[in-house]
């Protein structure tokens, strides 16, 4: 099993998932606020995360993912699309959910309160 920790707006969510799981699937099992406007088929960049720890445990990005990342905002060396980042090895992974991903998540889940907004 691999341990994945998601970070966003000062909170964190941790889950253990088997090798072969994508970061997006991992986030869904614990309701971490990672967006996926296209449903996780590598057609948009709303599942964009920064993998701050354990990036080497993930299967490397293919050209399709890199091309979609061109559309993402503020791409860094740690950037991955959650739907395409498949865990290949056991270990500890930490990722920060990007602002555009949080925006997509709260847009699609109006019942969830966006802690970044004053209510």
């Amino acid at each position: 099993m691999a341990k994945v920790r998601f970070l966003a707006h000062g909170r964190d969510w941790t889950v253990a998932v088997p090798v072969g799981t994508s970061l997006l699937q991992a986030s869904k099992t614990i309701h971490a606020p990672e967006g996926d406007a296209c449903g996780g088929v590598c057609a948009c960049s709303t599942c964009h995360v920064y993998v701050t720890k354990g990036k080497e445990l993930l299967r490397s990005a293919e050209e399709e993912e890199e091309d979609i990342l061109d559309k993402a905002f503020d791409v860094k060396a740690t950037s991955r699309l959650g739907c395409q980042a498949i865990i290949a090895m056991e270990g500890d992974i930490e990722c920060e959910i990007t602002r555009e991903s949080l925006d997509a998540f709260y847009n699609e889940h109006p019942q969830e309160k966006d802690p970044r907004k004053a209510h």
Binding site: E63, E66, D67, D70, K71, V75, K76
Partner: peptide
């Protein structure tokens, strides 16, 4: 360059994401 290696640059002009976001 887009392959072997795939080169990335941080955009210096933000906006509509033309030119592959660059």
């Amino acid at each position: 360059r887009r392959s072997r290696p795939r080169v990335r640059i941080t955009a210096q002009m933000d906006g509509g994401g033309h030119e592959f976001g660059m």
